[in-house]
Design a protein around this nucleic acid. Structure first.
Length: 344
DNA sequence: AAACCAACCAACCGCCCTGTG
DNA sequence: TCACAGGGCGGTTGGTTGGTT
């Protein structure tokens, strides 16, 4: 059972590469190229698996790689493309010269996901959490709606607390006058919550957030929708990140992303929308179907130039052939005007 | 000063696809 | 047509580092 290992596990070194190993690998590849990874470690005098050599070369040693911090423009590009193709890191990395799929993936998982969550945007669907919550709430019978806030908080409690406590933010939850008869003790119209990281106060915060979300949903779920809903939830159009790009209208219509003022994706202190805290409500459970349909469109309509597709098979070909450095598939706007839209 | 924690990122794992004989 | 090896890919792990308690 199972696959034959790519190399003998014995006598193969693992873990961090030393400078000497890097030198051996680099100088061997400079002389002989990368024709056969299985032979490379032997011939280069390395006690490494061929696959390990390939990864070390492609992710670190290649001379055309960038090793510094991601720029604002790069981050914006990642977010845009991720909203379209999902976790197709190699596709995204192909649009960022000098970056590897591993770089992009790590940066997404450690930074960008949290930034989006902090803005109240679900990093999976790229929709505001509030919109997802409202969508879900409208599909439920009233008794179920009552439990939605609880469930949502379960999903996002940790993330919210992390953001709130890390930023030590004093924030307020404003409530409209209550018309509900289901809540025994109406809360004050305004909460003043000072997060300072102590456990008992965290619990208190959780309870207050729970109550606020629950009341908002029970009373007026439709109020949670943005007045000018930027996405058409009745379709799977999900490629608005490319509304200013070379995508055909059939794919780019309908979804206009709203990631906040132009000031940025950068670390410009408190002005950055990344650092703004939203009350995050919602669920990440709705992404898959949309992405699948989008990918079908994308792979059929773009990667393959329009009409026909064989799905994943073709897109893998695309990774190596159509995303060559001189082939710009996405004509991303230089000023990334996507980011100029206001936060929802 | 030490212990603890969170963030980061290099490296690994296993699945999948492709090319070839 | 089939089997197999090579390589690509996304998900996950584990070590390191820097900050906080």
């Amino acid at each position: 059972m199972g696959r034959i290992p790519c190399c003998e596990k014995d006598n193969v070194k693992r873990g961090q590469w030393t400078p000497e190993e890097d030198n051996k690998l680099s100088s061997y590849i400079a002389q002989h190229g990368t024709r056969n990874w299985r032979l490379i470690p032997k011939n280069a005098g390395l006690q490494r698996c061929g696959k390990s050599c390939r990864l070390r070369w492609t992710n670190y040693l290649r001379p055309d790689l960038k090793h510094g911090q991601f720029t604002d423009a790069e981050e914006q590009t990642i977010v845009k493309l991720h909203s379209v193709v999902g976790n197709r890191w190699s596709l995204i990395a192909a649009q960022l010269p000098g970056r590897t799929d591993n770089d992009v993936k790590n940066h997404w998982n450690t930074k960008l996901k949290k930034k989006l969550s902090g803005m109240g945007i679900d990093p999976v669907t790229h929709k505001p959490f509030s919109h997802l919550m409202a969508e879900i709430a409208t599909t439920l019978a009233p008794p179920q709606v009552a439990h939605l806030a609880e469930a949502a908080l379960g999903c996002f409690k940790d993330e919210m607390l992390h953001l709130l406590t890390k930023n030590r933010i004093d924030f307020q939850i404003h409530h409209p006058p209550s018309t509900s008869t289901t809540t025994a003790a109406p809360p004050p119209s305004t909460y003043n919550i000072n997060i300072n990281g102590k456990n008992d106060e965290k619990e208190d915060t959780i309870e207050k957030i729970k109550l606020g979300i629950s009341r908002a949903i029970q009373e007026r779920p439709h109020d949670m929708l943005p007045s000018n809903t930027p996405w058409d939830s009745s379709t799977a159009n999900f490629a608005g990140a490319c509304s200013t790009t070379a995508f055909p209208a059939s794919i780019s219509g309908g979804y206009h992303h709203q990631y906040g003022p132009s000031s940025s994706f950068g670390n410009d202190g408190n002005r950055s929308p990344w650092s703004q805290i939203s009350i995050c409500t919602g669920s990440t459970c709705t992404a898959g179907d949309q992405h699948v349909r989008l990918h079908e469109k994308l792979e059929g309509g773009i990667i393959n130039g329009g009409e026909d597709s064989e799905g994943g098979k073709e897109i893998r070909n695309g990774t190596s052939s159509m995303f060559a450095s001189d082939c710009v598939l996405w004509d991303l706007p230089s000023d990334h005007d996507l980011m100029k839209y206001p936060i929802v």
